[in-house]
Computed example of a mutant assay.
Amino acid sequence: MALTLRSASAYVADHRHPYQRDDWLVSYQQDLLAPFDVPFDEKFLKQGANIGFQELAERALDGLGERPEPDLVVIAHGLPDHYPFRSIGGHVDKLVGGGSENFAISDQGLRAPFTALRIGNAYARSGRCRQAAVVVVEQSTFGQDEPLARDGKLADSAAVLVLDNGSGRWEVAAVPPAGHLRALLRDTVEGEHPLVVAGPWTDAEQVAATGLADHRVAPGSYCTSLWLDLARHHEEWADRHDAVVLCDTDPRTGRSHAALLRRRDTEGTT
């Protein structure tokens, strides 16, 4: 059985922490960037919000009201953590009671949450997952000039999706391989009449060419964008649409990604 969306939460930080120099972090950043001839500049750390993944994940979990009890926790991020020496999956596991299988998906850009959904569905179909928590995190403090975070254009944010084997209204119906946006939309919406939820990096003309109702995600995030809006609006979308296609195009690769959620009209769902 495919996973269904039981509950979700979105968090966007509106605060920052003062910079406290950490010699170990500075040394790590310098060593990390040097092989790629990317200059390290401590001013970017001083200017940043200095909010890490652990805090963002915790704030998003608090927004759920009732803590889930997942047996699978998947962290997804397209950009690295501000402080890379902490375990995020283990921290989330502790917050939800412990005992889950947990890991992170990284180095895939904004594809990471789509991969997380695909993995979660595979676990559920094989009987290894009763409930999954997908935690998408993104922070804006780097030791170099990061174009996606330049001029304060990247929010420190997190979204939590709690998925289980049947109590939610939205079923994760398909997560197709990456491709070109036009073809991906055509193939994903075939036979469906969904709301197309388009990330800020998608081509608006290609989305409009589908002739379907669409919701445009506002700029300000990279990997978390679609999932923040899904967390905010999934209940109202379920009252108006029988399917949702979430799609975005990674500005770094030009490759597009999509996921189809199909509404389940079953008595007793929440």
Rank of each mutant, 00 (worst) to 15 (best):
F44D: 08
W170D: 01
A34F: 10
L110W: 03
A49R: 14
N102Q: 11
G191M: 04
Y123C: 06
D31W: 10
S9T: 09
F85T: 15
R264N: 08
L32A: 06
R118P: 13
A76S: 06
V135N: 00
V175P: 00
Q20W: 13
A57W: 01
E192Y: 11
V245C: 04
L148D: 10
T253M: 07
G52C: 12
L32M: 10
R21G: 11
S100Y: 04
S221A: 12
V134W: 01
K94S: 11
G268M: 14
K94R: 13
Q30F: 08
A158Y: 02
P176V: 06
G63H: 02
Y19F: 10
A231Q: 01
V26T: 06
D214V: 15
A238I: 09
E55D: 12
E190R: 15
H180D: 13
R16K: 11
Q108M: 13
F85E: 11
D62W: 14
L260H: 10
V137T: 07
G166I: 09
H215N: 13
L154F: 00
T141S: 00
S157P: 15
V162E: 03
Y11R: 11
A259G: 02
P68A: 01
I75K: 03
S9I: 02
D248P: 04
D187V: 11
F36K: 10
D242V: 14
D187C: 13
A208H: 09
F85V: 10
G152C: 01
E66N: 15
A209D: 14
W227E: 05
S87E: 08
S140I: 02
T4G: 07
A183H: 15
W201C: 11
D37A: 07
D41Y: 04
V73C: 05
V38H: 11
A183E: 09
R21D: 14
G191E: 12
S126W: 09
V136F: 01
V207F: 01
F142E: 01
E267N: 13
R16V: 06
